[in-house]
Simulated assay, not measured.
Amino acid sequence: MGKPVWMWLSFLALVIAILAFDLGILHKENKEIEVGESLRLSALYISLGLAFGGWVWWYLGADSGIAYLTGFVVEKTLALDNVFVIALIFSFFAVPRLYQHRVLFWGILGVIVLRAIMIGVGATLVAEFSWLLYVFAAFLVLTGLKMLFMKEAEPDISNNALVRFMRRRFNVTETHHGEHFFVRQADPKTGKLTWFITPLFMALVLIEVADVIFAVDSVPAIFAITTDPFLVYTSNIFAILGLRALYFALAAMIHRFRYLKPALAVVLIFIGSKIFVADLIGLEKFPAALSLGITFAIIASGVIWSLVKTRDEKVEA
């Protein structure tokens, strides 16, 4: 796994402590999260992620610290696309704001496990077949070009194969039942009590599947930055931990980041191409500090340009 067991156990203990603090203290009771609270919690999670990056820099060295921070920034930006899809899912299933945090919390737990599996498999394959890094790099370049030049249609959740499958194979309630994912009620055909899944659970399943799809981009991106499994996983998880908190602010102003997607496409092209560029100019790898600087500059330019171009637009309720 690249690092001592105590480092992995310490990181997992830290993540568990953060989640326990979030659920057990900050959100012990269900309540709607307002934009102000969302921003404050996001600032806290970003600070924790950066503080962990500072520890990585101090304990493992500058190269590891820069690799972690680059991965953290890239994953955080990629997560913005995920926010748009999550908002569509919540809207389609008419999930009340009061219960959205519960869905996102359990979604994060699923992400922690799924990303561990995907990154573990990826690290094993890269260790055995180093040429896979070039495949990842080429995939990132092609993905970036596709994002730049091909217009993507808005997902049609009503015709989603998974939604149709769940409605066909399981008993599904027509309405929400508070914060419950499962409820027992009378079967309309037999009159006997049986288990039903609620729209809240269907929303959770779709969010988990959406993360797997987004991980197809983000996992190769981070492996193109560093092949250290510890840095790959920790930067991924710290970036995603804050997504739940940031969602409630971003969902209300996602239109303000309209021009961030082209910037993200350029970042993916850059991250993928720098592996080939390093080979062409005879470097073992692209300078980590330069990579972080260019990545941050591209993303910052996209954010600033988006905010400037949409400054006169009203925030949708």
Rank of each mutant, 00 (worst) to 15 (best):
A20R: 14
I25A: 07
R97K: 15
E174H: 07
A67M: 09
K309E: 08
V85Q: 00
F90H: 12
A116D: 09
A297R: 04
E154D: 06
F21G: 14
G272E: 03
V141W: 06
V111S: 14
D312K: 15
F21E: 06
Y259P: 06
G36A: 00
F223M: 05
F92Q: 07
F90Y: 14
G191D: 04
L109D: 10
L142E: 04
S306Y: 05
A203R: 12
Q100W: 02
A265K: 08
I254G: 03
L23P: 02
I207F: 04
F223A: 00
L14I: 11
N82P: 03
F223H: 07
I18G: 11
L132A: 10
I304F: 06
S38I: 03
I157R: 08
L26Y: 06
L114D: 13
V73E: 10
R167E: 13
A203I: 12
G49F: 02
A224M: 12
A43Y: 02
R258Y: 02
M253N: 14
L307N: 12
L41C: 13
T295D: 04
S10K: 03
L148P: 01
V85L: 11
V303A: 09
A224H: 09
D156T: 03
L241M: 05
I33K: 09
E152T: 04
V172Q: 05
L69F: 11
I89S: 12
A265R: 00
F170Y: 14
P199M: 04
G302M: 00
S91P: 10
K314C: 02
G282W: 04
V219T: 03
I237C: 01
A317E: 15
I197H: 01
K314R: 14
V308R: 13
F286C: 01
I254L: 13
A221Y: 06
V85P: 06
L48F: 07
I298A: 01
A210Y: 09
G71V: 03
L204F: 06
W131F: 15
P287R: 05
L260H: 02
V141R: 08
I16C: 01
A87V: 13
L204T: 09
V212D: 03
T310N: 07
L60Y: 11
T226I: 08
F149C: 08
I304N: 04
V121C: 13
W305Y: 15
D217A: 13
D81S: 14
A203Q: 03
A67L: 10
D22I: 04
I119E: 04
G36F: 01
A62G: 03
K76D: 07
P229G: 08
F196L: 03
L133T: 11
P220G: 00
I108H: 09
L162W: 08
R115P: 11
I108K: 13
F136P: 06
V141A: 00
F201Y: 13
F90K: 11
T295K: 07
A161E: 05
L283V: 09
V121A: 15
A317S: 15
F201T: 06
A161Y: 10
L231K: 08
V212W: 02
L12P: 05
T124P: 07
E154S: 01
T70A: 07
F201S: 05
Q185P: 07
P220N: 12
N171L: 14
N30Y: 15
F105R: 00
V266I: 12
V216N: 00
F296I: 15
G53D: 08
E174F: 02
A203C: 08
N30G: 11
S306G: 10
V35Q: 14
G272H: 11
M118D: 10
